[in-house]
Computed example of a mutant assay.
Amino acid sequence: MAQPAFEDIAETFAFLDDWEDRYRHLIEIGREMPALPDALKVPATKVEGCASQVWLMPRIEGQGADARFDFAGESDAMIVRGLIAVLHALYSGLPVGEVEKVDAQAELARLGLDEHLSAQRSNGLRAMVARLRASAAAA
């Protein structure tokens, strides 16, 4: 079961018939993401494999079995920033051990993103998911 914030996005996408409207919504939720401080836009947080500039800063809140996964992120491309917001809704607040169990491809397919993103954006999205999963696994 996806996080409630992701379910809200999925419901909105299901309601919007036109992909132009869905892209507008994606951009809108990306704009709502807090900006990543410039001090965190460094090579260590940059995601390779993305055509756009993408930075993800994972953080673990709590310790042991109570540890929860979260991250901040930003991109110089508005649609990609929206994709970061979607991933944030999918992963934020999960127990760290649950992050790897999320079938991101299946969840994102519910939004139809797999059919409507360019090959470069799809590759970048996979790179972002891989980075988040690796960060949670390392915690």
Rank of each mutant, 00 (worst) to 15 (best):
M128N: 02
A77M: 07
P37G: 11
V102M: 03
L87Q: 04
S52Y: 05
Q3H: 11
D70C: 08
D76G: 05
A136T: 00
L113M: 13
D8M: 12
A138S: 15
V96Q: 06
V42K: 12
S52P: 08
H88K: 14
E48L: 14
A104G: 13
A139K: 02
V54T: 06
Q63V: 13
A35G: 14
Q53C: 11
Q105Y: 07
A137T: 12
M33G: 10
W55Y: 14
Q53Y: 07
S75T: 01
L108N: 01
D18V: 07
P37I: 08
R81T: 04
R24P: 04
E28Q: 14
E98V: 02
Y91P: 00
F13W: 09
H88M: 09
A65I: 08
M33A: 13
D70I: 00
D21K: 08
V80Y: 00
A72P: 03
T45P: 02
D8N: 13
P95H: 07
L90H: 06
R126C: 05
A137I: 10
L56M: 03
L56T: 01
P4D: 13
R81W: 01
L56R: 01
P4K: 07
D66Y: 01
A51F: 09
G64N: 10
V99F: 04
R110K: 13
M1Q: 12
S92P: 03
A5W: 01
L108W: 00
A2K: 00
P43C: 02
A89S: 15
E11V: 05
D21L: 10
V80E: 00
P4A: 09
S52M: 08
M1L: 13
G93Q: 10
W55E: 01
A136Y: 02
I27K: 06
L125S: 08
V80Q: 02
Q3D: 08
L87I: 08
C50N: 07
Q105A: 15
G64Q: 11
E98D: 15
L40H: 13
L117M: 10
R110T: 04
R68Y: 03
I60K: 05
A119S: 15
P95K: 06
E74D: 15
L26H: 06
W55K: 00
E115A: 15
M57L: 15
P37F: 08
M78W: 07
A14V: 02
M1S: 15
G93W: 08
H116W: 11
F6S: 07
R31L: 10
G82H: 04
L40C: 12
M1C: 11
C50D: 06
F13S: 05
F6P: 00
A139W: 07
R24Y: 10
R31A: 13
D8A: 15
D70F: 14
T45N: 15
L83F: 05
I9S: 00
Y91I: 05
Q3V: 06
E100D: 15
E115N: 12
A134T: 14
L83S: 05
A119M: 09
P43E: 11
I29Q: 01
R133A: 07
Q105K: 11
S75R: 01
L16Q: 03
G49H: 05
L94Q: 06
H25C: 09
R121F: 06
D66L: 13
R121C: 09
S92D: 14
V42E: 11
Y23D: 07
I29R: 02
K41F: 03
D103K: 02
M78F: 12
A89L: 05
G30A: 05
A139M: 11
P95W: 03
V47E: 03
S52V: 04
A106P: 04
